[in-house]
Design a protein around this nucleic acid. Structure first.
Length: 409
DNA sequence: GGTATACATCTACCACCAGA
DNA sequence: TCTGGTGGTAGATGTATACC
């Protein structure tokens, strides 16, 4: 990895944030909790491409076409050699893993069986366009997700500098959202992973490295000690073998990156057992990042009318608004509509149904929607005058929001 | 080629636990 | 309580690789 000055990194982060502001991707928790080894670039390409992917109804496969110029903006690079890295990531070479080699082990929701599959079946980079086609087996875990999924911020994900930070961001975010929806309580939330399980999830132990590991994982209750021993025997199959190195290069690094740059915050403690106090598990404490909380509180101080809302939740709801409204509108406009509805999706649905049924020409769609929501228009109702740039105060109900979120789990 | 990163390896020291 | 085995922690150093 090359060195970047602090100023360069800040400039890149700003550029990435502005390009990606509020772009996000949805991933089934099954996929997030799968086990497999890949590189940081592959993980980032996967996140970007699923955010852009479209479903081919005939083949039931997801396919994404992304322009190289967009990829450069997303990854915040200026140099021409970037295209060579993309090519290297998708072209199979004996000595290096490519995007096509990326295999995961996951629990099939339908069959309840453990399956091992290649995630991507085809990838090409031609005429400056990256084309990625996914294995049809994972289509249910990426397209038309109705429940048990996590919404992740593309801007937060692509600026991470370590593959372990990236994987932990997805794993801990999924766990936090799940626990928040189930318990209906504010954090912190706790989750404990067996050390070997965590290494498998992070790709530190390659789940595909040995048939014995694959068959051990296919058992309902895997013998992680046996998997760890098997991984030790394999040359290069297990990195960060000592806990010290695992802590230093995976946990501590991810903790620093996530706590400083993302909307989630975590701490951890090793759980020891047996003679000598060997670390067998890691217990995570997860919460919304205090930076985000403070930012929201600061907004409150500036404008007492402004409702504070967790950005992660807002992203989730904004995504659902996009599913409801089949119009070309900006992210900021979606947010305005959401606020006008007190974060109530039913109100938005009703207003949009009304909009589709009403006969008059609407010059300002967003203004019309806000007025319809605010004034509770009915089908017998009134034709609204466009309200340009009106800010609508939200009296957001936390209970309503939680109820919506809970539907996802 | 210079430099940074991502590890691995080694060493010294410390803590915990079981058995004598 | 002492001792030995096991393993964690932290720092120093070395190596391969990637970036500019």
């Amino acid at each position: 990895m090359g060195r970047k000055s602090k100023q360069q990194m800040e400039e890149e982060t700003t550029a990435i944030e502005s390009f990606l502001s509020n772009q996000h991707y949805k991933k089934a928790n099954t996929l997030i909790n799968s086990k497999g080894r890949s590189t940081l670039l592959v993980q980032k390409l996967f996140a970007v491409s699923i955010a852009k992917a479209e479903l081919n109804q005939d083949s039931n496969t997801l396919e994404a076409n992304i322009y190289g110029t967009d990829l450069k903006k997303i990854f915040g690079v200026k140099g021409g050699s970037f295209y060579e890295h993309i090519k290297a990531a998708i072209e199979p070479v004996k000595s290096k893993p490519s995007i096509l080699d990326w295999r995961i082990i996951y629990s099939n929701d339908d069959t309840r069986e453990i399956e091992a599959i290649n995630v991507i079946t085809d990838a090409s980079f031609k005429n400056g366009v990256l084309n990625v086609r996914y294995n049809s087996k994972i289509t249910p875990y990426l397209a038309n997700l109705q429940n048990n999924y996590t919404v992740l911020s593309l801007a937060e994900a692509v600026q991470l500098n370590s593959v372990y930070s990236f994987r932990l961001y997805e794993i801990l975010k999924a766990e936090m959202d799940k626990q928040r929806a189930i318990t209906r309580k504010e954090g912190p939330y706790y989750v404990q992973y067996h050390l070997t399980d965590l290494k498998l999830r992070l790709g530190i132990i390659d789940s595909q490295a040995d048939p014995a590991i694959i068959s051990a994982l296919k058992k309902g209750n895997p013998d992680y000690d046996a998997i760890e021993k098997q991984a030790d025997k394999l040359d290069g199959a297990g990195k960060l073998k000592t806990f010290g190195n695992f802590k230093k290069f995976a946990l501590d690094k991810a903790q620093k990156e996530l706590n400083e740059t993302t909307s989630i915050w975590f701490d951890y403690e090793p759980v020891k057992a047996g003679r000598g106090g060997k670390v067998v598990s890691i217990r995570f404490k997860i919460d919304v990042n205090p930076r985000v909380k403070n930012k929201n509180n600061a907004c409150d101080d500036l404008n007492q009318k402004e409702t504070t809302i967790n950005p992660a939740r807002e992203l989730e709801l904004m995504d659902q608004v996009q599913d409801i409204i089949d119009e070309k509108i900006k992210i900021s406009e979606i947010r305005s509509i959401l606020k006008a509805s007190n974060y109530n999706l039913d109100k938005i649905k009703n207003a949009y149904d009304l909009y589709l049924r009403q006969s008059g020409n609407v010059e300002n769609f967003v203004g019309w929607m806000i007025a319809a929501i605010k004034n509770n228009y009915t089908s017998a109702g009134v034709k609204a005058s466009p309200i340009v740039g009106e800010y609508v105060q939200s009296t957001f109900s936390y209970e309503d929001m939680e109820s919506e979120l809970l539907d996802n789990f």
